[in-house]
Simulated assay, not measured.
Amino acid sequence: MKWNTFVAALGLFAPTSALLRFGCARLTVQRLDPLVNPGMIPSTHLHQIIGGNSFNVSMDPKTHDLPTLSTCTSCQFTEDFSNYWTAVLFFRARNGSFKRVPQRAQSGMEGTQGGMVVYYMSDALFDTAQKSKVTAFKPGFRMLVGEVNYRNREQARDFRQLTYTCMENEGTRAPESLDFPKKPCPVGIMANHRFPTCWDGVNLDSPNHRDHVAYPETGTFESGGNCPSTHPVKIPQLLLETVWDTKAFNNKADWPEDGSQPFVWSSGDKTGYSTHADYVFGWKDDSLQRAMDGHTYVSAPMLKTQSIAQQNKCTVPDMVKENIDDWLPKLPGDVVVV
C-alpha cells in the first residue's frame, strides 16, 4: 500500500477514521517482566517498555492500580497509564559480538525517544466507519501474545498476525513475514504485535496470561469473524508497531559468513518466531470505553494529549543496572542464541 493511501486511511489527511493511533516514548529498557517473572530482578531477558511510570518489578493486580500509582505516562494520551512491552532486538556481528538495535519514531512523531505506536480498533484497520461495539478492558486486565520458546513456522501458527515488515520506505506496510527478513531493510524492520480480540468476560488474567482471551472462530479480527462461545466478549484490537532502526547494520560484510540474517531477539531467538508482547491495562476511569464508543478520529477529542517533549520526560529508574548499550560479548543475562 502506498504511503499516502495508508495515511489517508488512518484519517491523518481526512477526518473519517475512527480508531486510536498514538505514539509512546521509551519508558525504560531493562531486564524486568512483572507479568511473567514478577518480583525477579533481573528477569530472564531484556525488554523495552512504554506507558505509565508505576511500572515496577512486581505489579500485584490486587494492589497495583496503574492510574493511581503513576504520576506520568510516556504515551500521547495522558489517561493511558497502561504498560506495554516487547523483547529487544540485537545485531550479532560476524565476530560474534552483539549491539542493541535502536528504535525510532514513525513519520509525524519525530523527536519521540524510542518507543512504539499503539492502536486500539473496534473494526478492521481500514474500515473507517468503525461502528462495531467493543468492551474496553477492565482494571486488572493483563495478557500476553506470542511464545518466547517458539522457533519454527508451525509453532508460530498458534498466533495470528505476529509479523515483520522489511521497510523499503516510510510507507512500507507489506509484505509481512512471520520470521525475520532475510535481506537488509533500507529504513528498518517493523515488528507488528496484534493481540487476540475475544474475552471470556470473567477472568482478568490466566496462569499463562493467554487462556482468558482468544481469536475469532475463523479468520482474523480484520475479516470480521465471530468470537467463539467460550470467549463471547469482543474487545478492542490492540496492535503495537515497533520500528527497529537497522540501517547501521545493513552492510552484509558484517553479517554471518553463511549469509544468514544477523538479528536476534534478546531472548536468544535468531528466527523471529518467538516474537511476543505483554500488556497491563491502565487507562484512567472509563476513558478507553468512551473513546471506543465515540467513533471519532485518530485525534480522539474526548481524550487529553501531551507533547512529545512531555512524553520523553516520563521514565523510571534503572533497577537492574547492567550494560546494554556497548558492543557486548553476550546477550544481557548470558542468554544463549538458539
Rank of each mutant, 00 (worst) to 15 (best):
F91G: 14
M121A: 00
S107H: 09
F137R: 01
R157S: 13
V134M: 01
T165P: 10
G115E: 11
R92D: 05
V145H: 01
F126W: 02
Q113L: 13
C166G: 02
T135W: 09
P139F: 14
T112E: 12
T135K: 15
P102E: 07
T112K: 14
Y119Q: 14
V145E: 06
D158Q: 14
Q155F: 06
S107C: 13
S97W: 03
F159G: 04
F159V: 14
K133L: 03
V117F: 07
V134C: 01
V145S: 01
T165M: 15
R160L: 05
S132Y: 04
R142K: 15
P139W: 11
R157C: 14
V101D: 02
S132H: 07
V101N: 08
R94T: 00
V148T: 12
S132K: 11
A136N: 02
E110S: 11
K131P: 09
D158P: 08
G140E: 03
K133T: 12
L144H: 09
Y120H: 02
K99N: 07
R100F: 10
G140M: 05
V134P: 03
Y119D: 10
A156M: 04
R104L: 05
D127A: 12
N149H: 11
E168H: 10
Q161V: 08
M116P: 12
A136Q: 05
Q130W: 06
D127F: 04
R100W: 05
L162Y: 05
M116G: 04
A124S: 10
F159I: 13
V118T: 11
R157Q: 15
R151G: 06
R104M: 14
T112Y: 08
M167I: 12
C166W: 05
F159Y: 14
F137N: 03
F141A: 00
T165R: 13
G96E: 14
V118W: 00
R160N: 02
R104W: 06
T135Y: 06
M143K: 11
R157G: 10
